[in-house]
Nucleic acid binder design. Structure first.
Lengths: 120, 120
DNA sequence: GTAAGGGCTGGAGTATACTCCATGTCAAAT
DNA sequence: ATTTGACATGGAGTATACTCCAGCCCTTAC
Protein backbone atom coordinates (compact mmCIF):
# COMPACT_ATOMS: atom_id res chain seq x y z
CA UNK A 1 0.00 0.00 0.00
CA UNK A 2 2.73 2.45 0.96
CA UNK A 3 6.36 2.64 -0.11
CA UNK A 4 9.17 3.77 2.15
CA UNK A 5 11.55 6.25 0.57
CA UNK A 6 14.08 3.45 0.04
CA UNK A 7 11.59 1.26 -1.81
CA UNK A 8 10.21 4.19 -3.74
CA UNK A 9 13.74 5.12 -4.76
CA UNK A 10 14.21 1.65 -6.24
CA UNK A 11 10.79 1.78 -7.86
CA UNK A 12 11.34 5.10 -9.58
CA UNK A 13 15.07 4.93 -10.21
CA UNK A 14 15.53 8.27 -8.46
CA UNK A 15 17.99 8.47 -5.60
CA UNK A 16 16.71 9.01 -2.07
CA UNK A 17 18.38 12.39 -2.06
CA UNK A 18 16.67 13.35 -5.29
CA UNK A 19 13.29 12.34 -3.90
CA UNK A 20 13.87 14.51 -0.85
CA UNK A 21 15.08 17.32 -3.08
CA UNK A 22 11.93 17.06 -5.20
CA UNK A 23 9.86 17.28 -2.08
CA UNK A 24 11.76 20.33 -0.87
CA UNK A 25 11.02 21.88 -4.26
CA UNK A 26 7.35 21.01 -3.86
CA UNK A 27 7.22 18.69 -6.83
CA UNK A 28 5.82 15.90 -4.72
CA UNK A 29 4.24 15.79 -1.29
CA UNK A 30 4.16 12.28 0.13
CA UNK A 31 2.30 11.57 3.36
CA UNK A 32 4.17 10.84 6.59
CA UNK A 33 3.66 8.00 9.03
CA UNK A 34 3.60 8.45 12.79
CA UNK A 35 7.42 8.51 12.83
CA UNK A 36 7.50 11.33 10.33
CA UNK A 37 8.75 9.01 7.63
CA UNK A 38 7.62 9.49 4.06
CA UNK A 39 4.99 7.12 2.68
CA UNK A 40 4.71 7.08 -1.07
CA UNK A 41 1.69 5.64 -2.87
CA UNK A 42 0.97 4.18 -6.31
CA UNK A 43 -0.44 7.56 -7.22
CA UNK A 44 2.88 9.14 -6.33
CA UNK A 45 4.52 6.66 -8.71
CA UNK A 46 2.23 7.73 -11.56
CA UNK A 47 2.93 11.34 -10.73
CA UNK A 48 6.72 10.84 -10.62
CA UNK A 49 6.56 9.05 -13.95
CA UNK A 50 4.81 12.05 -15.40
CA UNK A 51 7.39 14.40 -13.89
CA UNK A 52 10.12 12.31 -15.49
CA UNK A 53 8.43 12.59 -18.86
CA UNK A 54 8.35 16.35 -18.52
CA UNK A 55 12.01 16.29 -17.55
CA UNK A 56 12.92 14.05 -20.47
CA UNK A 57 11.28 16.52 -22.79
CA UNK A 58 13.47 19.25 -21.30
CA UNK A 59 11.00 21.05 -19.10
CA UNK A 60 12.96 22.89 -16.39
CA UNK A 61 12.23 22.01 -12.76
CA UNK A 62 10.82 25.50 -12.20
CA UNK A 63 8.10 24.89 -14.70
CA UNK A 64 7.38 21.42 -13.40
CA UNK A 65 7.12 23.13 -10.03
CA UNK A 66 4.41 25.42 -11.37
CA UNK A 67 2.57 22.48 -12.81
CA UNK A 68 2.86 20.59 -9.52
CA UNK A 69 1.50 23.56 -7.63
CA UNK A 70 -1.58 23.61 -9.86
CA UNK A 71 -2.00 19.88 -9.61
CA UNK A 72 -1.90 19.95 -5.82
CA UNK A 73 -4.33 22.88 -5.83
CA UNK A 74 -7.03 20.59 -7.20
CA UNK A 75 -9.46 20.13 -10.06
CA UNK A 76 -10.27 23.77 -10.61
CA UNK A 77 -6.79 24.25 -12.05
CA UNK A 78 -7.37 21.70 -14.79
CA UNK A 79 -7.89 24.28 -17.52
CA UNK A 80 -4.65 26.01 -16.65
CA UNK A 81 -2.74 22.75 -16.57
CA UNK A 82 -4.22 21.81 -19.91
CA UNK A 83 -2.95 25.08 -21.33
CA UNK A 84 0.51 24.30 -20.02
CA UNK A 85 0.40 20.86 -21.58
CA UNK A 86 -0.66 22.27 -24.93
CA UNK A 87 2.19 24.74 -24.87
CA UNK A 88 4.60 22.07 -23.83
CA UNK A 89 3.38 19.86 -26.63
CA UNK A 90 4.31 22.55 -29.11
CA UNK A 91 7.77 22.84 -27.65
CA UNK A 92 8.23 19.07 -27.85
CA UNK A 93 7.18 19.09 -31.51
CA UNK A 94 9.68 21.88 -32.09
CA UNK A 95 12.37 19.86 -30.37
CA UNK A 96 11.52 16.88 -32.50
CA UNK A 97 11.84 18.88 -35.69
CA UNK A 98 15.18 20.21 -34.54
CA UNK A 99 16.36 16.72 -33.69
CA UNK A 100 15.36 15.41 -37.09
CA UNK A 101 17.14 18.26 -38.77
CA UNK A 102 20.28 17.61 -36.77
CA UNK A 103 20.07 13.93 -37.57
CA UNK A 104 19.89 14.72 -41.26
CA UNK A 105 23.02 16.86 -41.08
CA UNK A 106 24.78 14.25 -39.00
CA UNK A 107 24.00 11.61 -41.61
CA UNK A 108 25.33 13.86 -44.34
CA UNK A 109 28.52 14.44 -42.40
CA UNK A 110 28.98 10.73 -41.82
CA UNK A 111 28.39 10.12 -45.51
CA UNK A 112 31.06 12.65 -46.51
CA UNK A 113 33.54 11.24 -44.03
CA UNK A 114 32.96 7.71 -45.25
CA UNK A 115 33.46 8.71 -48.82
CA UNK A 116 36.71 10.45 -47.95
CA UNK A 117 37.77 7.42 -45.96
CA UNK A 118 37.04 4.97 -48.75
CA UNK A 119 38.92 7.00 -51.36
CA UNK A 120 42.06 7.01 -49.26
CA UNK B 1 38.10 37.40 -44.57
CA UNK B 2 38.46 37.44 -40.80
CA UNK B 3 35.92 38.09 -38.09
CA UNK B 4 36.69 39.86 -34.85
CA UNK B 5 35.30 38.17 -31.77
CA UNK B 6 32.49 40.74 -31.65
CA UNK B 7 31.43 40.08 -35.23
CA UNK B 8 31.82 36.36 -34.82
CA UNK B 9 29.64 36.53 -31.73
CA UNK B 10 26.88 38.14 -33.77
CA UNK B 11 27.40 35.67 -36.59
CA UNK B 12 27.14 32.59 -34.41
CA UNK B 13 24.72 33.83 -31.78
CA UNK B 14 27.17 32.85 -29.06
CA UNK B 15 28.22 35.49 -26.56
CA UNK B 16 31.79 36.78 -26.59
CA UNK B 17 32.32 35.18 -23.20
CA UNK B 18 31.07 31.86 -24.47
CA UNK B 19 33.42 32.03 -27.45
CA UNK B 20 36.36 32.68 -25.13
CA UNK B 21 35.17 29.90 -22.85
CA UNK B 22 35.00 27.48 -25.78
CA UNK B 23 38.52 28.45 -26.68
CA UNK B 24 39.71 27.91 -23.12
CA UNK B 25 38.12 24.48 -23.31
CA UNK B 26 39.91 23.82 -26.59
CA UNK B 27 36.76 23.49 -28.64
CA UNK B 28 37.97 26.11 -31.08
CA UNK B 29 41.35 27.66 -31.76
CA UNK B 30 41.08 30.88 -33.75
CA UNK B 31 44.19 32.60 -35.05
CA UNK B 32 45.43 35.83 -33.50
CA UNK B 33 46.42 39.06 -35.23
CA UNK B 34 49.51 41.09 -34.34
CA UNK B 35 47.65 42.59 -31.38
CA UNK B 36 46.83 39.19 -30.00
CA UNK B 37 43.19 39.58 -30.96
CA UNK B 38 41.22 36.59 -32.15
CA UNK B 39 40.54 36.26 -35.88
CA UNK B 40 37.78 33.84 -36.76
CA UNK B 41 37.33 32.47 -40.26
CA UNK B 42 34.47 31.05 -42.33
CA UNK B 43 35.83 27.64 -41.49
CA UNK B 44 35.49 28.46 -37.81
CA UNK B 45 31.86 29.33 -38.51
CA UNK B 46 31.25 25.93 -40.09
CA UNK B 47 32.97 24.28 -37.17
CA UNK B 48 30.97 26.22 -34.57
CA UNK B 49 27.77 25.31 -36.36
CA UNK B 50 28.74 21.68 -36.10
CA UNK B 51 29.56 22.07 -32.40
CA UNK B 52 26.13 23.61 -31.89
CA UNK B 53 24.50 20.65 -33.59
CA UNK B 54 26.31 18.31 -31.27
CA UNK B 55 25.20 20.43 -28.33
CA UNK B 56 21.61 20.49 -29.54
CA UNK B 57 21.64 16.72 -29.66
CA UNK B 58 22.79 16.70 -26.04
CA UNK B 59 26.43 15.86 -26.43
CA UNK B 60 28.25 17.10 -23.32
CA UNK B 61 31.06 19.62 -23.80
CA UNK B 62 33.58 17.05 -22.60
CA UNK B 63 32.79 14.80 -25.48
CA UNK B 64 32.76 17.64 -27.98
CA UNK B 65 36.15 18.47 -26.51
CA UNK B 66 37.41 15.01 -27.39
CA UNK B 67 36.06 15.35 -30.89
CA UNK B 68 37.67 18.77 -31.27
CA UNK B 69 40.99 17.40 -30.14
CA UNK B 70 40.85 14.74 -32.85
CA UNK B 71 39.76 17.24 -35.44
CA UNK B 72 42.64 19.58 -34.66
CA UNK B 73 45.02 16.62 -34.70
CA UNK B 74 44.41 16.22 -38.42
CA UNK B 75 43.25 13.77 -41.04
CA UNK B 76 44.70 10.66 -39.50
CA UNK B 77 42.04 10.85 -36.78
CA UNK B 78 39.22 10.63 -39.31
CA UNK B 79 38.41 7.01 -38.57
CA UNK B 80 38.17 7.69 -34.87
CA UNK B 81 35.95 10.70 -35.43
CA UNK B 82 33.76 8.67 -37.71
CA UNK B 83 33.34 6.11 -34.95
CA UNK B 84 32.30 8.86 -32.57
CA UNK B 85 29.78 10.15 -35.07
CA UNK B 86 28.32 6.70 -35.57
CA UNK B 87 27.93 6.23 -31.86
CA UNK B 88 26.44 9.65 -31.49
CA UNK B 89 24.01 8.90 -34.30
CA UNK B 90 22.74 5.93 -32.34
CA UNK B 91 22.24 8.04 -29.26
CA UNK B 92 20.33 10.63 -31.29
CA UNK B 93 18.08 7.93 -32.70
CA UNK B 94 17.51 6.71 -29.17
CA UNK B 95 16.66 10.24 -28.06
CA UNK B 96 14.25 10.57 -30.95
CA UNK B 97 12.45 7.38 -30.00
CA UNK B 98 12.20 8.54 -26.42
CA UNK B 99 10.85 11.89 -27.54
CA UNK B 100 8.22 10.24 -29.70
CA UNK B 101 7.19 8.01 -26.86
CA UNK B 102 6.88 10.96 -24.52
CA UNK B 103 4.89 12.84 -27.11
CA UNK B 104 2.48 9.95 -27.39
CA UNK B 105 1.93 9.90 -23.65
CA UNK B 106 1.56 13.65 -23.55
CA UNK B 107 -1.11 13.49 -26.23
CA UNK B 108 -2.94 10.82 -24.29
CA UNK B 109 -2.83 12.90 -21.15
CA UNK B 110 -4.12 15.95 -23.00
CA UNK B 111 -6.90 13.82 -24.47
CA UNK B 112 -7.97 12.59 -21.03
CA UNK B 113 -7.89 16.08 -19.57
CA UNK B 114 -9.98 17.44 -22.40
CA UNK B 115 -12.56 14.75 -22.03
CA UNK B 116 -12.79 15.43 -18.31
CA UNK B 117 -13.05 19.12 -19.04
CA UNK B 118 -15.83 18.73 -21.60
CA UNK B 119 -17.95 16.53 -19.39
CA UNK B 120 -17.96 19.10 -16.59
C1' DG C 1 45.80 64.20 -26.10
C1' DT C 2 42.14 62.15 -24.21
C1' DA C 3 38.04 59.62 -24.30
C1' DA C 4 35.37 55.92 -26.34
C1' DG C 5 35.11 51.49 -28.17
C1' DG C 6 36.78 47.49 -29.07
C1' DG C 7 39.79 43.54 -27.41
C1' DC C 8 42.84 40.90 -23.76
C1' DT C 9 43.53 37.98 -19.23
C1' DG C 10 42.69 35.65 -14.83
C1' DG C 11 39.63 34.69 -11.67
C1' DA C 12 35.24 35.03 -9.22
C1' DG C 13 30.30 34.38 -9.43
C1' DT C 14 25.79 32.20 -11.06
C1' DA C 15 21.98 28.88 -12.27
C1' DT C 16 20.41 24.35 -12.34
C1' DA C 17 19.93 20.05 -10.47
C1' DC C 18 21.38 17.39 -7.74
C1' DT C 19 24.64 14.82 -4.05
C1' DC C 20 26.92 14.31 0.23
C1' DC C 21 27.54 14.80 5.15
C1' DA C 22 26.98 15.36 10.21
C1' DT C 23 23.98 14.55 13.57
C1' DG C 24 19.96 12.58 15.42
C1' DT C 25 15.59 9.38 16.01
C1' DC C 26 13.40 5.00 16.10
C1' DA C 27 12.56 -0.14 15.78
C1' DA C 28 14.05 -4.68 15.24
C1' DA C 29 17.72 -8.10 15.82
C1' DT C 30 21.37 -10.12 18.80
C1' DA D 1 21.18 -3.25 26.38
C1' DT D 2 23.44 -2.17 22.40
C1' DT D 3 24.27 -2.48 17.66
C1' DT D 4 22.39 -2.22 13.05
C1' DG D 5 19.70 -0.28 9.52
C1' DA D 6 16.51 2.80 7.65
C1' DC D 7 14.86 7.13 8.03
C1' DA D 8 14.94 12.35 9.40
C1' DT D 9 16.90 17.42 8.93
C1' DG D 10 19.79 21.42 7.65
C1' DG D 11 23.34 22.84 5.25
C1' DA D 12 27.54 22.38 2.52
C1' DG D 13 29.59 20.70 -1.71
C1' DT D 14 29.70 19.35 -6.82
C1' DA D 15 29.30 19.27 -12.00
C1' DT D 16 28.19 21.64 -16.03
C1' DA D 17 28.14 25.48 -18.73
C1' DC D 18 28.44 29.55 -18.80
C1' DT D 19 28.59 34.90 -17.24
C1' DC D 20 30.55 38.81 -15.13
C1' DC D 21 34.21 41.79 -13.53
C1' DA D 22 38.60 44.36 -12.65
C1' DG D 23 42.39 45.99 -14.70
C1' DC D 24 45.01 46.55 -18.78
C1' DC D 25 46.25 47.36 -24.05
C1' DC D 26 45.37 49.52 -28.78
C1' DT D 27 43.27 52.29 -32.26
C1' DT D 28 40.31 55.73 -33.89
C1' DA D 29 37.42 59.94 -33.43
C1' DC D 30 37.03 64.56 -31.62
Amino acid sequence: MYFSIGDFSKLTGLSIDTLRYYEKENLIRPERNKHNQRQYTEKDKTWIDFILRLKETAMPLREIQNYAKLRYAGDQTMKERLDMLHMHRESVLEKKKQLENNLKHLDQKIEIYEKANRSK
